[in-house]
């Protein structure tokens, strides 16, 4: 008994402090996830949920819109993540050799869109994509005699338009991480490579790129997760249309849950999305992981 008393006297405070985040995690993360798992096997109603086994999953896999949403999500991810990563790295490499003051300016400039409200950004891009000649993009293309385009209103251009928007706004955090990683590569490696007859490309390929791999992996994993969950820009700009051309899996989940109140189906879809994200992350860690030490 004395032993327990002594233990609590020594370590009691530690457990009290740990308890706060643990309780928050249990109540606001673990419980909702488990509840959603149960919900995915139910025809859900707040007062009278009904157990229906795998019916939600069956319905989901038979739904054409679900597959369309999966495809759109896949296209969005493939079309944005690698190119955005490439742009981010390119910008970081261009900014890195500049003076501290210039670096700070560019870091702030590229980070600004990240702290701006998504609604504000969507409104700005809504105006850029305006289908009349008062839209910035159409106004610009008009200078070259190109006719107005309904960027968000046509199924063959709407998803691309949403993707195109991300090329301009999502680089701030990545640039800061890449700049930190570039600063961590010892200068002597480049000097040794200079003496070793390495060209600029050889230095990038053999030093910069391999040593940035941990940062690239982190950015790749987080970008893919965020890209699978793309929702706000779709919700604000196209509502998944036209003709499901911009319906992504996250938007579909929202629509099933909060428009059609099919909570069980939405929960099943969330679990499939979660499962795909986990699989994609494991694959990346497996193929891209490196334990660089310098």
């Amino acid at each position: 008994m004395d032993k327990w008393k002594q233990f609590f006297r020594d370590y009691g405070w530690c457990y009290l402090f740990i308890a706060v985040p643990v309780i928050l995690f249990l109540v606001f993360t673990l419980y909702p996830v488990l509840a959603a798992l149960v919900m995915s096997f139910q025809k859900y109603h707040v007062l009278n949920p009904k157990w229906i086994g795998f019916d939600n999953y069956r319905m989901m896999f038979q739904d054409e819109v679900f597959w369309k949403a999966m495809w759109n999500t896949f296209v969005f991810t493939v079309g944005t993540v690698p190119l955005n990563l490439f742009i981010t790295l390119g910008l970081a490499i261009l900014i890195f050799p500049r003076s501290t003051r210039t670096q700070t300016f560019f870091k702030a400039a590229f980070y600004l869109p990240t702290v701006m409200s998504g609604v504000t950004l969507a409104l700005v891009w809504f105006w850029i994509y305006d289908p009349t000649e008062s839209g910035l993009l159409n106004m610009f293309l008009g200078l070259f005699g190109i006719e107005n385009v309904m960027w968000l209103g046509k199924s063959n251009s709407s998803l691309f338009s949403i993707m195109f928007m991300t090329y301009f706004i999502n680089h701030g955090a990545g640039i800061i991480l890449y700049l930190a990683a570039l600063g961590g590569i010892p200068k002597s490696l480049y000097e040794a490579a200079d003496i070793d007859h390495a060209s600029e490309w050889s230095k990038f390929k053999n030093i910069t790129w391999p040593l940035l791999k941990p940062t690239t992996l982190y950015l790749l994993v987080t970008s893919i997760i965020l890209s699978f969950q793309v929702f706000m820009s779709i919700y604000l700009m196209t509502q998944g249309g036209p003709n499901f051309a911009t319906t992504t899996i996250a938007y579909l989940i929202y629509e099933h849950a909060f428009v059609y109140y099919k909570f069980g189906l939405a929960a099943a879809e969330s679990f499939v999305l979660g499962f795909i994200i986990i699989l994609a992350s494991i694959a990346q860690f497996k193929f891209m992981s490196s334990d660089v030490e310098y």
Binding site: P186, S188, L189, E191, A192, A193, N206, I207, P210, L211, K213, S290, V292, E293, Y294
Partner: peptide
């Protein structure tokens, strides 16, 4: 070099 400057991933 003082820190040897060996390419760590090679």
């Amino acid at each position: 070099f003082q820190d040897y400057a060996l390419y760590p991933h090679m």
